[in-house]
Design a protein around this nucleic acid. Structure first.
Lengths: 114, 114
DNA sequence: CGATATACCTCATACTACGAGGCATCCGAG
DNA sequence: CTCGGATGCCTCGTAGTATGAGGTATATCG
């Protein structure tokens, strides 16, 4: 995708929701998958095949940090947002809101000055 | 992508905006590219490399119909939404709105029942 | 004992949008 | 008159995302 003139909200929603959810409460991958479904009232449902690779990438990028924990024999990798992650979240949310506004404007037929 | 459990609003915005804009007024490709930019208050800016192939695909799918016109030596291909296209638009807008709601719910930290 | 839930993971695939580029015409500035 | 920019169409290669399917292993409950 290289540079892009439209930002990544047309994708990139998974990353944003992960950052948001982990901001208020550290979670592990499996938990996140379900949290996204629940917190979005079933309107979003990203599979594990989307979330796990994302978590790895985001940790590598420094947006998340992780620690391991073993609960009743099952291992969990618990993630939390770093300072960088919180900054990224702010930026992403800002552009997301603007993009949604733009789309809504088109859908409502609002006219802007030429 | 095959079946998808999340619909295509994370992409698919170009298709939706095209359908919407052409619904109220037939346009040609070049015009559409700029209309999307203007009507979204510069928040959306899909390149010609995105729009032209899309128009072709959408016409092939029966969402659009076209006619040629030559204005002062330059040829234009003017598209309008078909009945099928309008139906598709309705469905897409519906799911788009729901998806946005879902994302906003996550962003606002609204809790849904478990 | 076996199914289901938990919890992690990877892979191939489909598809999108992007930027860069190409072609031709018209018009206005110099 | 010439040249550049705007108009108007197009294709191509690329990067990147999310998807579903599949794989592993353990705990729990009937």
């Amino acid at each position: 995708m290289a540079k892009r003139s439209n930002p990544d909200f047309l994708n990139g929603v998974p990353e944003m929701t992960i950052l948001k959810l982990l901001e208020s409460q550290p979670m592990y991958g499996y938990e996140l998958v379900q949290a996204i479904r629940l917190r979005s009232d079933n309107h979003l449902d990203f599979g594990e095949g989307c979330i796990y690779p994302l978590l790895h990438r985001m940790e590598k990028e420094g947006l998340l940090s992780s620690r391991k924990e073993t609960v009743s024999g099952r291992e969990r990798i618990i993630y939390r947002t770093t300072r960088t992650g919180k900054k990224r979240l702010q930026e992403t949310v800002h552009v997301w809101q603007e993009t949604v506004q733009g789309v809504q404007a088109v859908l409502k037929g609002i006219q802007y000055a030429t």
